[in-house]
Amino acid sequence: MEGSVAMSALPEGCIAQAISLTTPRDACRSAAVSAVFRSAAASDCVWKRFLPSDLPSILSRAVDPVECPSKRDLYFRLCDRPILLDAGAMSFRLDRSSGAKCFMLSAKALSIIWGVTPQYWTWAPHPNSRFPQVAKLLNVCWLEIRGKIKSKLLSPNTTYAAYLIFKVDENYNGLSYPPQEAMVILGSQVSERTLRLVRPRMGAPARRNTRIFRSFLNWRGVLAVPQSQDEAEEEEEEEDTSGVEVSPRSRDDGWMEVELGEFYNAEGEDGEVEMSLMEVRGGHWKRGLIVEGIEIKPKYA
């Protein structure tokens, strides 16, 4: 068309300015258009726009210095490898697709009831953890874990969710029944979840068959087969699954995560996000939970 100008004929600076108004994902896609677009999409003026405005302040708290030759390299460095802040009390990274800030509070930064009592909890390094120490549950009947973070540290106009990051050892007990109650609060926003940190060891049909066989042996007087605590809990669990909303899922880093709740961090929000996981009503003893921390990251539908 007469008078029209091809995009590739525009000055590289103009193209870079246009790309900076999109998203990191769009910037990467635009690099495939042409050599001019590829050069523009890699420029510092584009990736500076995608980096948080308070990044210098965040990096000043890093345990180890972070140095990259370009803003683009810095962006992907922060997406791929979380950095430790505040002497290892928390970690920071960027969400790859949006550039939103993500933080993980270490177990040491959380409030864990009885966490400093050696007969209930122990603290030790873990080969798969980014933090110096994780918390391992030895035996408690009152499970209560709480954390908090200032909302102004997070990206504005973003829906976030909080996740407990954990593992269970092979000798765990009491983590599937009774279900745990989780809550996330920011101002007037209250998000609640009912969850189980561990799925049943056996499926419902297998549990029914075990109970039938045990009852048969006891009825015939062939053998007195006592019901173990795990079996008793799983039997109760089979009768009480209606209120469970969320289940754990595996992560790429080898840990498990389970959502505690969500919230919307509005522009100018200056409150405190409070997160909790509790199971205090059942009186059941629990063991084998390994807590790395609580991660706050964007939630996508």
Rank of each mutant, 00 (worst) to 15 (best):
E2F: 11
E2A: 14
S4V: 09
M7C: 09
A9T: 08
P11Y: 11
G13I: 10
G13R: 10
G13L: 15
C14S: 13
A18W: 00
I19M: 02
P24E: 01
P24L: 09
D26A: 13
A27F: 00
C28G: 05
R29M: 08
A42D: 10
A42L: 01
D44T: 06
C45I: 15
P52A: 02
D54S: 09
L59P: 03
S60W: 01
R61Y: 00
V63T: 11
C68K: 14
P69D: 13
P69A: 06
R72P: 01
L74R: 07
L74F: 04
Y75N: 04
A87D: 14
G88H: 00
G88K: 00
G88I: 01
M90Q: 14
S91V: 08
L94Y: 11
L94H: 03
S97G: 04
K101H: 05
L105P: 12
S106V: 01
K108E: 10
A109V: 04
S111D: 14
S111W: 10
T117G: 00
P118W: 04
W121G: 03
T122I: 04
A124Q: 12
A124K: 14
A124H: 11
F131H: 00
Q133K: 11
V134G: 03
L137D: 04
W142H: 04
I145E: 01
K150A: 14
L154Q: 12
S155K: 05
S155N: 09
P156A: 05
T159Q: 11
Y163S: 09
I165D: 00
N173Q: 09
G174M: 05
Y177K: 02
Q180W: 04
V184K: 05
V184A: 07
V184N: 06
L186A: 14
L186I: 06
V190Q: 13
T194I: 13
L195S: 01
L195V: 13
R196H: 05
V198N: 00
R199D: 09
P200V: 02
G203V: 04
R207K: 07
R214H: 06
S215C: 07
F216T: 11
W219S: 10
R220S: 07
A224Q: 09
V225F: 00
E231R: 05
E231M: 13
G243T: 12
V244H: 13
V246A: 13
R251N: 13
M256C: 11
E257S: 15
E259D: 07
Y264K: 14
A266P: 03
G268M: 10
M275L: 14
M278T: 15
R281L: 15
K286E: 05
L289P: 04
I290L: 10
V291G: 02
I296W: 03
Y300I: 09
